[in-house]
Simulated assay, not measured.
Amino acid sequence: MDPITTVAEINGHLAPIAFGIATIGPAIGVGIVVGKTVESVARQPELQGRLTGLMFLGIAFTEALAFVAIAVAFIPFP
């Protein structure tokens, strides 16, 4: 059995698993960002518009980590 072929087969099967595990972090991050925004709006309702904009910015940065995880999970190794 060729060792390079074996490594390629293993990486091909592990990439979706790695992506699934790597998305746990951003999911937790988005949950924290949204939860803290809801808490802040409950304390000061007059800042809802500004806090909502900041929330979406935080979600965008957090979701960028998921896109990096997609790219890294599918990088072929020699």
Score class of each variant (00 low, 15 high):
Glu39Asp: 11
Ala18Leu: 14
Thr5Ala: 14
Ala73Tyr: 03
Ile59Asp: 01
Val38Asp: 01
Ile32Gly: 09
Leu65Ser: 04
Glu9Gly: 10
Thr5Ser: 15
Ala64Tyr: 05
Ile24Gln: 05
Gly29Trp: 14
Gly29Phe: 00
Arg50Lys: 15
Ala66Asp: 04
Leu14Met: 13
Ile28Ser: 03
Gly53Trp: 00
Ala60Tyr: 09
Gly49Glu: 00
His13Tyr: 14
Leu65Glu: 04
Ala66Met: 02
Met55Pro: 02
Gly20Thr: 09
Val72Lys: 06
Asn11Ile: 03
Ile21Pro: 13
Leu65Lys: 04
Gln44Thr: 01
Glu39Gln: 02
Phe19Arg: 05
Thr23Met: 12
Glu63Gly: 02
Phe67Gly: 03
Gln48Phe: 09
Ser40Ala: 15
Leu51Tyr: 04
Leu14Ala: 12
Pro3Asn: 11
Leu54Thr: 09
Ile28Phe: 00
Thr62Ala: 08
Glu63Ala: 03
Ile10Val: 15
Ile10Thr: 11
Ala27Ser: 10
Ile70Val: 14
Val68Trp: 04
Pro16Tyr: 00
Gly35Trp: 01
Thr5Met: 12
Thr37His: 06
Thr37Leu: 00
Val34Arg: 15
Ala15Trp: 11
Ile75Ser: 10
Gly58Asp: 06
Leu54Asn: 09
Pro76Ser: 15
Thr62Gly: 05
Gly20Lys: 05
Gly35His: 00
Gly53Ile: 10
Ala66His: 01
Leu51His: 03
His13Ala: 15
Gly12Ser: 10
Val72Pro: 01
Gly25Thr: 12
Ala42His: 02
Arg50Asn: 12
Gly12Ala: 13
Ile24Ser: 13
Thr37Glu: 03
Ile75Asn: 07
Val30Gly: 14
Ala64Gly: 04
Ile21Lys: 09
Ile28Gln: 06
Ile10Gln: 08
Ala66Pro: 04
Asp2Phe: 10
Thr37Cys: 13
Arg50Trp: 10
Thr5Cys: 10
Gly49Thr: 13
Val30Glu: 07
Gly53Asp: 08
Glu46Arg: 03
Ala18Lys: 14
Gly29Glu: 00
Gly53Met: 11
Ala69Cys: 06
Val7Cys: 03
Ala18Phe: 03
Asp2Trp: 00
Glu9Lys: 13
Leu54Trp: 09
Gly35Gln: 14
Ile59Asn: 02
Leu54Gly: 13
Glu63His: 01
Ile32Val: 13
Met55Lys: 02
Thr5Gln: 06
Pro78Lys: 15
Ala73Val: 06
Glu46Met: 05
Ile59Arg: 01
Asp2Gln: 08
Ile17Glu: 09
Ala60His: 07
Val72Ser: 12
Val68Cys: 07
Ala15Leu: 08
Ala8Asn: 12
Pro45Leu: 08
Met1Leu: 15
Met55Asn: 00
Ile4Gln: 11
